[in-house]
C-alpha cells in the first residue's frame, strides 16, 4: 500500500480550556471516501478544518501529500493548494459572477492566464451542470446551485483531497439531492473525499469508511455495511437509533 494522502497523528486541540479534539489518529488513502458523522459539538467540523489549517491545533501533526503541517502552521499555503473545501454556507464571493468565482484562485494563486482559467472553469461548471449560469451572481441562484458552484470552484484548483463540511445542511430538502448527486459523480471519478454529513444514505452508497465522533474523539470507524448493520460502541448504537428511525 502506498503512503496515505492525509495522515493525522496525535492531534489535540483546545478552545481555551475546552478540549475539542482528543488524540485523533486517522489515515486516508488516495481515492478513499470517508464520511465523518456524530452529534453536534463532537468536533467533526473542527477536525476537517484543521486539515487545511483554517483552525490551529496545539499538539500532533497532519501530513497532506507529504507536506507536514505542525502546530506552527508553516506550510499553510502549500497544503491549502492541495486541499479543496466546500462549506455548509457555500461562502461564494457575492460580488463576483459564478465564472469569476471559479477563475479567481487559478488566476491569482496559480498564475494561469485569464482565458485558460475561464475555459477550465467552464469545464468544471459543465461537470456540476450549471454552465449556462456562468454570468449570474451567486445571489441570483438557488442554494443547491450555489453549493454546486462552490464544488466547481474548489475543483478548479485541481485539489488532491476534497473536504466537505456539512455541504447539504443549509439546503432545502428538494435541493439536497442535486448536490449529493454531484458529490457521488466526484466520488466515482476517484477523488479523495472527507465528508462531514448527516446524510446516511450518502454514507451507505459512497463511503469506504464511516467515522463516528463524539466528545472530540473517534468512537468507531468501520466500513458502512459493518457500521450500520453492527455498531459496536454503545454511543454509536444510541446515535444511529436517533437518526435512523
Amino acid at each position: 500500500m502506498s503512503d496515505p494522502i492525509v495522515k493525522i497523528s496525535g492531534l489535540n486541540k483546545w478552545y481555551g480550556d475546552f478540549h475539542v479534539l482528543r488524540d485523533i489518529d486517522l489515515a486516508v488513502e488516495k481515492g478513499e471516501r470517508i464520511v465523518i458523522c456524530g452529534p453536534s459539538g463532537s468536533g467533526k467540523s473542527t477536525l476537517i478544518r484543521c486539515i487545511n489549517a483554517l483552525e490551529e491545533f496545539q499538539e500532533g501533526e497532519i501530513v497532506v501529500d507529504g507536506i507536514a503541517l505542525g502546530p506552527n502552521l508553516k506550510h499553510i499555503d502549500a497544503v491549502r493548494r492541495e486541499v479543496g473545501m466546500v462549506f455548509q454556507s457555500f461562502n461564494l464571493f457575492p460580488h463576483l459572477t459564478v465564472l469569476e468565482n471559479c477563475t479567481l484562485a487559478p488566476i491569482w494563486v496559480r498564475n494561469i492566464p485569464k482565458k485558460d482559467a475561464e475555459i477550465n472553469a467552464m469545464k468544471f461548471l459543465e461537470r456540476v451542470k450549471i454552465p449556462h449560469q456562468a454570468n449570474k451572481f451567486p445571489g441570483q441562484m438557488s442554494g443547491g446551485q450555489q453549493q454546486r458552484v462552490a464544488i466547481a470552484r474548489a475543483l478548479t484548483m485541481n485539489p488532491k483531497v476534497m473536504l466537505f463540511d456539512e455541504p447539504t445542511s443549509a439546503l432545502d430538502p428538494e435541493m439536497v439531492k442535486e448536490v449529493l448527486d454531484t458529490m457521488v459523480d466526484l466520488a466515482e471519478e476517484g477523488m479523495t473525499m472527507l465528508v462531514v454529513t448527516h446524510e446516511m444514505g450518502f454514507a451507505r452508497e459512497v463511503a469506504n469508511r464511516v467515522v463516528f465522533m463524539d466528545a472530540g474523539q473517534i468512537i468507531e470507524a468501520n466500513t458502512p455495511n459493518e457500521f450500520f448493520a453492527a455498531p459496536q460502541h454503545a454511543r454509536t448504537k444510541l446515535f444511529l437509533s436517533q437518526i435512523l428511525r
Binding site: 493548494r81 473545501m85 462549506f87 461562502n91
Partner: peptide, 30 residues
C-alpha cells in the same frame, strides 16, 4: 463581511494580501 468569506479565500490558497484586496475590501467598501 462574514468570516466565511475570508475562510473560503484562504481555503483556495489566497494569501492575506490577495484575500484582502480581492475579496474583503471590494465587498467592505461597497
Amino acid at each position: 463581511i462574514p468570516r466565511g468569506q475570508g475562510e473560503a479565500a484562504a481555503a483556495l490558497g489566497l494569501s492575506w494580501w490577495k484575500t484582502t484586496s480581492l475579496i474583503v475590501l471590494p465587498q467592505g467598501l461597497r
